[in-house]
Structures are given as structure tokens and as C-alpha cells.
């Protein structure tokens, strides 16, 4: 592969490409609008709980909501429970579906490939910038959740699912783990999105396809008749982060999920490489 043998110059070029890609991504209004929408969820939730006259009882509302009044940290975790099935993947679908198809529809893909970067490098850079967005997205929910929770409810001891009590420091570690799990969950989806994005020149079409796929995978995950398929769905472990809130932590689902997502990244990354490498770039 010529691009890989192009030593240091090409590598710095790749770095520059990534930096410019990130600049473009995080200068877009669309990116900030999506992050703001994500941030509004923990804020809305915390304000509503604060203003309501009766605190939610155990088992009422979304998971962990009743814990919120004891420890503001749980706002972040409840917000992640709410955003993981739909809202978060939707934003990842928009960013990942747009990677190649968006450039193609704008007619800028040709110019990106004129630079001696190579198609493999461009794919990698596009994927890494999507990963950066996944981090930013779950980080936004987590951070806003922490801040609004600490402001409205204060921090204190938190109760794990097993009934054990942990202090503030431990609660921060646990919610960071949950954030890490959710981010890893989005990596497979981002790779699927990258592949779909190489299939078409219509950015919106690719975004919609990725979003629909997310829903379809979750619906399939609900059907008992397809139990054999469930462990292979990229959505299978999305809400399994409850296992990180037990005492001691159950790592099985976290590691299984990481392996599964790695498999998705490898497979759909390879598919994207195959498709993009053989594609005629006309626009």
C-alpha cells in the first residue's frame, strides 16, 4: 500500500488531516446543536424532579430516578439510561452517516483524495473523528448530569443496586465507567455508519439508514424467537451498564460488549475499506 510506506511526511499529513477534520466537525452548528440537545436531557430531568412536590419513590420512573435526590451524581446515570436507546445513537448516526456521503454530496470528496493521503487514511481519519464525537456526546450527558445534579441536589452517599453504600469518589468512578461503557457501545454503530456512508452519495440517506438500523436491531433484540441472534446484535449490551453498579462490579457484560464492538469495528471497517477502495469517486 503506497499510503502506508510514505513514512513520516505522510504521518504528519494524517495528523494534520485529523486535526482539520476535528476542526470542521466541532465548528459546525449541527454538532453543537446536537450536543446541546443531549445536555438538555439531564437538565430537564433534574429540574423536573427538583420542582415536583413529591420525590419519586423506589421503582418509579426511569431506573435510578429515586436515587437522584440522595446523590446528584445519579442524574448523569439516569440521563444515560434515557439517552442510550435512541437519542445518543441518533446523533452518532447523523455524524457517522455523513462522513463519506456528506463529502460526496458536497462535491468535496474528490479534493480530499487529491491530497496524497490515500483512501485508507481518509477512512481512518473520518472514523476517528466520529469516535471523538461519540466521546464528546456521552461526555456531555455525563458532565451536565454531574453539574446539574450537584447544584440541585448536592453530592452524598449513593446506594448501589446490591444495597451497598458508596462515597462520592466511588460514585464518580462508577459513573465514569458507565460513560465509558456507553461510549464503547457507540463505536460499533459508528463503524456501521461509516460503511453505509461509503455506499451512497446522499448524506441524509445514509444518516436515516443508520438510525433505522439502530431501531431495527433493538426491535430484533425484543423478540424471544431470535434469542440465538441476540448476543450478536450491536445493541445487545447497550443497557447492560447496570452491571457496573453492582457490588463488586460484574465485568462480564462490559468486556463482552467491548469484544463485540471491536468485532463490529473490524468487520464494518473492513467492508468500508473494500467498498471505498474500489469505489469510483465521481463527485
Amino acid at each position: 500500500m503506497p499510503a502506508d510506506s510514505d513514512t513520516a511526511r505522510a504521518r504528519t499529513h494524517g495528523g494534520a488531516l485529523l486535526a482539520s477534520e476535528l476542526r470542521v466537525l466541532f465548528r459546525r452548528w449541527r454538532t453543537w446543536a446536537m450536543l446541546a440537545a443531549l445536555a438538555s436531557i439531564p437538565v430537564l430531568m433534574a429540574v423536573v424532579v427538583r420542582l415536583s412536590s413529591e420525590p419519586p419513590g423506589p421503582g418509579e420512573g426511569p431506573p435510578f430516578l429515586d436515587q437522584v435526590t440522595n446523590n446528584g451524581m445519579f442524574v448523569a446515570i439516569t440521563a444515560l439510561v434515557l439517552t442510550t436507546p435512541l437519542f445518543l445513537p441518533l446523533t452518532v448516526a447523523v455524524v457517522s452517516g455523513d462522513t463519506i456521503a456528506g463529502e460526496a454530496s458536497l462535491g468535496t470528496l474528490r479534493y480530499l483524495l487529491v491530497a496524497p493521503a490515500g483512501r485508507v487514511r481518509l477512512l481512518l481519519v473520518k472514523y476517528l473523528s466520529t469516535v471523538a464525537f461519540c466521546l464528546a456526546a456521552s461526555g456531555t450527558v455525563l458532565l451536565t448530569g454531574w453539574v446539574i445534579g450537584a447544584v440541585l441536589f448536592g453530592t452524598g452517599e449513593a446506594t448501589l443496586l446490591s444495597g451497598d453504600t458508596i462515597g462520592v469518589g466511588d460514585a464518580v468512578v462508577r459513573s465514569l465507567l458507565v460513560g465509558a461503557h456507553v461510549t464503547i457501545c457507540m463505536l460499533g454503530l459508528a463503524a456501521v455508519g461509516l460503511f453505509i456512508s461509503t455506499l451512497t452519495d446522499a448524506g441524509v440517506g445514509a444518516m436515516a439508514a443508520v438510525a433505522v438500523l439502530t431501531i431495527v436491531a433493538q426491535v430484533l433484540g425484543q423478540l424471544d424467537q431470535l434469542a440465538w441472534l441476540h448476543p450478536w446484535l450491536f445493541t445487545h449490551h447497550w443497557l447492560a451498564f447496570a452491571d457496573l453498579l453492582r457490588e463488586p462490579v460484574v465485568w462480564t457484560s462490559f468486556t463482552e460488549n467491548a469484544l463485540l464492538q471491536a468485532g463490529y469495528v473490524a468487520f464494518f471497517g473492513a467492508l468500508a475499506h473494500g467498498r471505498f477502495g474500489t469505489k469510483d469517486v465521481l463527485s
Partner: peptide
């Protein structure tokens, strides 16, 4: 384990504790 809950039974000497996270009981 339940998807977002847990039931615990803890036996320590003469003490027996049962915890249900759904009810926080």
C-alpha cells in the same frame, strides 16, 4: 440480577439480610 435491579440475600453468622433494590426494601 434483574435488568435494572437486584435482590440480595446476605447471611453472616446469625444475621440474615434480604435487600430488594426495586423497592429499596
Amino acid at each position: 440480577f434483574e435488568s435494572f435491579g437486584e435482590r440480595d440475600v446476605i447471611v453472616n453468622g446469625d444475621e440474615v439480610w434480604v435487600y430488594d433494590s426495586d423497592e429499596n426494601a
